[in-house]
Design a protein around this nucleic acid. Sequence first.
DNA 1: ATTTTTACTTACTTTTAGTAACTAATGGCT
DNA 2: AGCCATTAGTTACTAAAAGTAAGTAAAAAT
Lengths: 133, 133
Amino acid sequence: MGVTIADNQSVALKEKIKKYFWKTKPFMDVGCCPTKDVLAATTDKWSMFVLFNLGYSNTLRFNQLKEKINGISARMLTVTLKKLESNGLIERKVFAEVPPRVEYSLTEFGAQFSERLVDFGDWFLDQYQTPPT
Amino acid sequence: MGVTIADNQSVALKEKIKKYFWKTKPFMDVGCCPTKDVLAATTDKWSMFVLFNLGYSNTLRFNQLKEKINGISARMLTVTLKKLESNGLIERKVFAEVPPRVEYSLTEFGAQFSERLVDFGDWFLDQYQTPPT
DNA sequence: ATTTTTACTTACTTTTAGTAACTAATGGCT
DNA sequence: AGCCATTAGTTACTAAAAGTAAGTAAAAAT
């Protein structure tokens, strides 16, 4: 009765957001938003490339990552890796060798996160190639 | 034959990333990554709050958004709204009145985007409350 | 003794985020 | 007429973050 598909979609969205607001409330009340924090930590200029390269290659060393990620500097790679590690998305394994060997890989959480991120990216790219009017 | 669930998951992730690399290649070749750009544009400190508030309230004016989003300044709201508008996620409707009236709402694309974002956030929050070891 | 390798630091510059105060245009009040 | 309120911003400034280029440690190989 005068309820369009768009209306139903918007009702579903509204419900989801409402639920989400409740879920985040305890965090928001103390002044933080974990989702935003981690999304921000994974959507800067480099993080996605690190995650996807590790997801694709399983394990990579510092300089291997640096070679695969076109244009990243050592410092930015360090900063990015530290951020990802502190958010529990990647693992850092140091070998007591000289010259040093450090191997990076996705955690289970990081792999799940990356899978969702790539799904999101894939969906987005389809929209982007036929951009909305 | 020694293939664990984790292995299968990682194969699926690898396939997705491979597909995604191919899909983004034409963009990457010319030095841009649309997904990262828009994700970055929607996961800064404020964008998510704007999207979710508009998704929840349908239409909001500048100062209504400012009141709902705790701590945002006029300039940052302006900057955020412009960015979201330029990415096709929100719509800006100006009324020729004094004092001025400007109404913001999600585009269809913005609503779909927000739905995926809130799904992502919802999943993430569940992980966060039982953080991975 | 010098060079090579690896995984970073350090010191610096540039860019972006954020704040506080101001503005245009009109209606209503005294 | 003069003054205040309202709305949706802007302007000029400061703080923080991103990014660059050069340097470092430690041992093994030449």
